[in-house]
Design a binder for these strands. Structure first.
Lengths: 141, 141
DNA sequence: ATAAACCTGACTAAAATAGTCAAGTATCTA
DNA sequence: TAGATACTTGACTATTTTAGTCAGGTTTAT
């Protein structure tokens, strides 16, 4: 059970972005250098973030990205959703090939995985980008 | 971020085992049939569970496995630990190659991943095998 | 014009996962 | 004591996922 680096990078990059308060566009090149993430990979990630309208792009020289919403309104769950970082415990839900097939004898643990998913997702729903930026500036003092 | 089937199977199998109240050994063959898990794979899993003393083996005909502790005392965290199902968010901790290298500019999100790991692990520490068995028998009524 | 920066899709090496396979050993029952 | 049942171990492997790279664009400020 691990977080993929796509999800991690997306959060890191957006925290970096958020520190500039939506005033100047921040280029991926800068984020790449500061966060140590490959530029090409960042482009993939930002393509997804843009499609989900979490960021806005500014093309051309001096271009880059800015947040499309207030940091308070962007929750971890939105970020993870954008880059397809999902919490998956069991595949009982849609395809009935694997997992519980409806028989009472199976899936003694179905409830458990539901609870677990909810538990984790609650964390993601509560945490906003603003929380992260604040947490960070406090630490720096 | 997903649970591996090794972890899932381990829990499913132990819940199955726990329903027999430590009286009769349950063969892996039975668990395999009931839970739809490959026998060979179960053997790998139980080898680990035995090493961590969560189960005891009974060899020979009519043999199988029984719980080595009370269901109340076996927590999810013990099970996952036994089969190497860990919660991993970021590798900042031991190898300094990747992740934050100690520079203040990096790892704006380090605290976050720690919080997340704790959040998930708390769930695992609280939930016992007994809880799962109870939950299941209640549902059946 | 030209350089900076976004944009897109295809490709790929490496790692992890989810098993299978083979060759045992121990113990109960007839 | 033969044979079946069931545990035990280690090596092997196909598939999938991850974590990128690469190549070729387009847009826009200066």
């Amino acid at each position: 059970m691990k977080l993929t680096s796509k999800g991690r990078y997306a959060v890191m990059a957006l925290v970096d972005l958020a520190r500039f308060n939506n005033i100047n566009p921040v280029s991926l090149r800068d984020i790449s250098l500061r966060q140590g993430i490959s530029l090409d990979y960042l482009e993939q990630i930002f393509s997804k973030l843009r499609k989900k309208e979490l960021v806005q792009s500014v093309r051309g020289t001096q271009g880059g990205y800015i947040l499309n919403k207030k940091a308070k309104e962007i929750k971890l769950t939105n970020i993870f959703d954008a880059v397809d970082e999902k919490v998956k415990t069991v595949q009982c839900k849609k395809d009935s090939k694997k997992g519980c097939t409806g028989k009472a004898t199976k899936c003694l643990t179905h409830n458990l995985w539901d609870e677990l998913e909810n538990h984790i997702n609650n964390f993601f729903k509560e945490k906003s980008l603003e929380d992260l930026v604040k947490d960070n500036s406090e630490r720096r003092v």
